[in-house]
């Protein structure tokens, strides 16, 4: 547990240092060491709450997720833009409850973020204890569309778990497919 906290802090410090060097736009010893010092000060003064992360990153899963996310982004943007330019019709929408299979905070957050970034779906409410996302969907016309969208959200969750999840979460996802 202690080791986990230290790992979290090292990851956070490394990320802050990378951001610092990117902001300076140059990779010199001065920016790297300065960034590291500032990261340490920031992390000591504003300590992060512990994040329970038991999984590990799977590069292939991350690639699959990122590719599919990019496709989703383009397709959904085109769909919503087409809806906007279709004059004379009012788009229908729905609020759907999607119970996720992996109720970890990190999985919930990542799924919600990815869903919110894609136009056409928006998180209205989150039930953290039960792991339920309430999603507002634009451009659905009947209940079959609703069910299809619920399946898409679960597929997104499966791809995320395949990319970042722990072995236990992966089996959980595979069993309740």
């Amino acid at each position: 547990m202690i080791a986990g906290r230290w790992r979290d802090r090292c990851v956070a410090a490394a990320a802050l240092t990378v951001i610092w060097t990117l902001l300076w736009g140059s990779f010199t010893p001065l920016t790297v060491i300065g960034g590291l010092l500032i990261a340490i000060v920031v992390l000591t003064v504003f300590p992060l709450p512990p994040v329970t992360y038991a999984g590990r990153v799977h590069p292939l899963g991350v690639l699959k997720f990122a590719g599919r996310f990019a496709v989703d982004l383009v397709v959904a943007s085109a769909q919503v833009a087409a809806l906007a330019f279709r004059f004379g019709s009012t788009p229908r929408s729905a609020v759907i409850a999607v119970p996720l299979r992996v109720p970890s905070d990190l999985g919930l957050t990542l799924t919600a973020e990815a869903l919110s970034l894609v136009p056409g779906s928006l998180i209205v409410e989150v039930d953290r204890e039960r792991g339920v996302l309430y999603v507002h969907v634009l451009g659905v016309s009947d209940l079959a569309d609703v069910e299809r969208f619920r399946g898409e959200v679960l597929a997104l969750e499966r791809r995320l778990v395949a990319a970042f999840g722990s072995p236990a979460e992966r089996t959980l996802c595979r069993e309740n497919r």
Binding site: P91, R92, A94, V95, V140, D142
Partner: peptide, 10 residues
């Protein structure tokens, strides 16, 4: 305009 609202009861 909503097809279904599964949050309404909650």
């Amino acid at each position: 305009l909503l097809i279904t609202d599964e949050l309404a009861s909650e």
